[in-house]
Amino acid sequence: MTSFPFASYIVAAAFAVAAITMIAGALIAVLSKRIIRGVGGLMICCIGLAGLYYFLQSPFLALMEILIYVGAVCVTIVFGVMLSEPDEPKPTDRVADLFGAIPIRSGRFGLWGAAAAFLVCTLIGIGIARLSLGGPWPVAPARVSDGSVAAIGIALLTTYSLAFELISLVLLLAILGALVIARSGRTKPPSTAHDQLGILAAQVTAPAPPSDTHPLVSTTAGHEPETAPR
């Protein structure tokens, strides 16, 4: 079809690389023991998915996929991994499995639960694949635009401008909500009379405290009872 030799083979090989990268990354993300490797698998999966987007004639979305998922979402999950203790806990004897009836043996992988989950997801995957392959799809209609970056920009600012503004509002609210949720429980009001006296003394002795001294004092006071066992 083109003058370049073996062009169709090269294209098919690139497509196979993208698809295999995506599936392998997803498998790594799901099956790895340590969560940080799962995050790496999610990055690999998103890079393969960006390759598939490129084959679907939308290079702008491929760029956005890498930029948003690999650059923002995965890095945020890495921050979450650093701030918590996400490795798989040792299963105890009393822990019931997903379906409540199959107990997990201690120290084992939980073979019955894995088999049940594998059965469920295999049934779902095969069902959807059969449905999508066997369904009567309509004939592709005539294109009304070329789907280029210029067309996307024009459509974002004319047809979808309300949704565009709404999603910026949603992102702003998500940032504020994340700050509020993650901040609660970090600074506690002073619990003992000694801390209250200390804050009062700090307020009295400080001649003209700037506005940020009070949260600082309450922060240092609030961390003390947190070291006690809850």
Binding site: L42, L52, G113, A117, C121
Partner: peptide
Amino acid sequence: LVLAACLLAIGIFGLLRRRTLIGMLI
């Protein structure tokens, strides 16, 4: 469509099998 179905199946498997919240998020 088949690749998307495979991805969905892998995601549901992970959602059922992961025992931490971050793994379920992934």
